[in-house]
Amino acid sequence: MTEAEYLKLLDRIVKGAEYLENPLIKPEDYSRGMRLYDQLVQQLLKYKGLIE
């Protein structure tokens, strides 16, 4: 992963967290968003060597 890809991933994680904070989103959108958010965080943790 390049530095640019890393920064893009961080940006997506932050934007996802901001989206998920919205109390007006539908439960199914929240669930879908959380799954994507979790996947992105897992990618980041693997890149940083914090998980395998």
Rank of each mutant, 00 (worst) to 15 (best):
M1G: 15
T2A: 12
T2I: 08
E3N: 11
E3V: 09
E3K: 10
A4R: 12
E5G: 08
E5C: 05
Y6T: 08
L7T: 08
L7R: 15
K8S: 12
K8M: 07
K8G: 01
L9R: 06
D11L: 06
R12T: 03
R12Y: 06
R12P: 00
V14I: 15
K15R: 12
G16P: 06
G16I: 01
A17M: 09
A17K: 07
E18K: 04
Y19F: 14
Y19I: 06
Y19V: 05
L20D: 04
E21R: 10
N22L: 08
N22F: 10
N22R: 11
P23N: 06
L24M: 14
L24R: 15
L24N: 15
I25C: 05
I25K: 11
K26R: 12
P27L: 01
E28I: 14
E28W: 09
E28P: 01
D29Q: 09
D29S: 06
Y30W: 07
Y30K: 14
Y30M: 11
S31L: 13
R32N: 14
G33N: 04
R35A: 12
L36Q: 13
Y37F: 15
Y37C: 02
Y37D: 10
D38T: 10
D38S: 14
Q39D: 15
Q42V: 13
Q43A: 10
Q43E: 11
L44H: 09
K46G: 01
K46P: 02
Y47K: 05
Y47T: 08
Y47S: 08
Y47V: 06
Y47H: 08
K48D: 13
G49R: 12
G49Y: 12
G49A: 14
G49E: 14
L50Q: 07
L50E: 13
I51Q: 04
E52I: 03
E52A: 03
